[in-house]
Design a protein around this nucleic acid. Structure first.
Length: 412
RNA sequence: GGAGGCUUCGCCUAGUCUGGUCUAUGGCGCCGCACUGCUAAUGCGGUUUGGGGUAACCCCCCAUCCCGGGUUCAAAUCCCGGAGCCUCCGCCA
């Protein structure tokens, strides 16, 4: 446990403090139970007693009442402290995860073939240029209306998003996911329980007046969906495909990915979310990855799969696989999807449990991107562009675009 | 935004005015047993949920009547605050 926390850069003293607070919670709870038990005994005797005997009992009851109150307060305080410390702790890291920062990931596999534009005899345009030629993306007016990192998808761009979303939902439904349209505003508990109010808090939009948070992913409402519930083991796995807008402050990314729609404050995303028996979590994690690979392969995008390093995991994941698509004009692979195994981390914080026979225990939650729209559009436009600025539509997507097989530049 | 009503152990429900024997009633459902030569009917018993004690079981303790405070020796019950749902009015895509 400590090695894991150290790998995350967390203080091992935190673990010790947590353990001692929990012990305090436990012992104060026992004391409270004892006092309360005696108090209840008295409660039965008093109505039957009379005279001196009753006065005596009432005296003792008065003392007990004060003691119970004190014990109750001690119990609450210890429980609160335990909870406070617990919330600061990230999930345990899977032992196989590569140790290090953002750049210390391991490449697990590479899929597809990168196009050689030089051999094809032209220089690829970047996604923004292509988007403008196609009349699909308008970032100038996005900035005029809402500021930097905002955009309009126009014409065929809007159609492309709808096609992608429909195709993604179709794939997920086929795989047995229940399609879900989720709230984009959530209460603090949902945000905290999914682990987004720790170090990631600065990337979250908060509506102070109403104390609502804007979700950065539908993972949040999908995880909180079964909050405070006990799910019968035979109903697992539960799989949901959420579609929602996602809002991200992108704090600390000044000057990074400023061109086009690669990194934006608002976008739509289809997300897979699974509730499983913890024993099945690793297998489900691989299944989520397979569905992501199926999706990217269907879109005919070259990509690599990485095992994200410890320092880049976030608070809730014990392990994370990213699929990174090749972006020709950047000359590198960039994250398109991300599948996280959160084990029991979120379930404990949201009090989501499973009933297995007579036992009740936390279950495991996992999430994986199926289609984050703007980035997928970036990858599609750049990888499938042709010399004249048109863009070939991968076969899989054509039924969702009215049979269209190529997106043509518009005049003006 | 304004007014009113509601919230009890899976579902429905009694209880709240009048605090203690509420260790929460009854029905449905569910589980077990018995009986009947079949899964039906009937009878009997069990059935809130969570935490702790226990190697485990029996069992015992605590909490739990939407949530949080308060009054009291004692709260499902009285007081204050909040949430959710419903109805009506206003506003609105």
């Amino acid at each position: 446990m400590r090695a894991s926390q150290r790998a995350r850069g967390e203080d091992v003293d935190l673990v010790d403090a947590l353990l001692s607070a929990d012990e305090r919670r436990r012992s104060s709870s026992v004391r409270f139970d004892e006092l309360r038990s005696e108090q209840k005994q008295l409660g039965k005797l008093i109505p039957r007693a009379s005279g001196d005997e009753k006065a005596e009992l009432l005296k003792r009851a008065g003392e007990l009442s004060a003691a119970v109150k004190a014990a109750d307060a001690a119990q609450d305080e210890a429980a609160e402290e335990t909870q406070r410390l617990l919330l600061r702790l990230g999930n345990l890291v899977h032992p196989d995860v590569p140790v290090g920062g953002e750049d210390d990931f391991t490449v697990l596999e590479t899929v597809g073939t990168i196009r050689d534009f030089e051999a094809e005899g032209f220089t690829p345009r970047d996604h923004l240029e292509l988007g403008q030629l196609l009349g699909a993306i308008d970032v100038e007016r996005g900035a005029k209306v809402s500021g930097s990192r905002f955009y309009y998808l126009t014409g065929v761009g809007a159609l492309l998003e709808l096609a992608l979303v429909n195709a993604a939902i179709a794939q997920a439904t086929e795989a047995g996911f229940v399609p879900m349209l989720t709230p984009a505003l959530v209460k603090p508990r949902a945000m905290e329980g999914t682990g987004f109010l720790g170090q990631a808090a600065e990337n979250v939009y908060h509506l102070e007046k109403d104390d609502y948070y804007l979700v950065g992913t539908s993972e949040v409402p999908l995880a909180a969906y079964h909050m405070d519930e006990i799910v019968p083991a035979e109903r697992l796995p539960l799989r949901y495909a959420g579609f929602s807008p996602c809002f991200r402050r992108e704090a600390g990314t000044y000057g990074k990915d400023t061109r086009g729609i690669f990194r934006v404050h608002q976008f739509d995303k289809v997300e897979m979310f699974s509730y499983v028996d913890p024993a099945d979590a690793e297998a489900e994690h691989r299944r989520l990855l397979e569905w992501e690979k199926q999706w990217l392969t269907g879109l005919e995008l070259p990509f690599q799969v990485i095992d994200v390093a410890t320092g880049d995991l976030g608070a809730s994941a014990s392990r994370k696989y990213d699929c990174e698509a090749w972006i020709p004009t950047q000359g590198k692979y960039r994250e398109l999807t991300s599948a996280s195994n959160c084990d029991e981390f979120q379930a404990r914080r949201l009090s989501i449990r499973m009933r297995d026979g007579k036992h009740v225990k936390p279950l495991a939650t996992l999430n994986g991107t199926l289609c984050a729209v703007p980035r997928t559009i970036v990858a599609l436009l750049e990888n499938h562009q042709q010399e004249d600025g048109s863009v070939r539509v991968p076969e899989m997507l054509r039924p969702y675009l009215g049979g269209r097989d190529v997106l043509e530049p518009v005049a003006g």
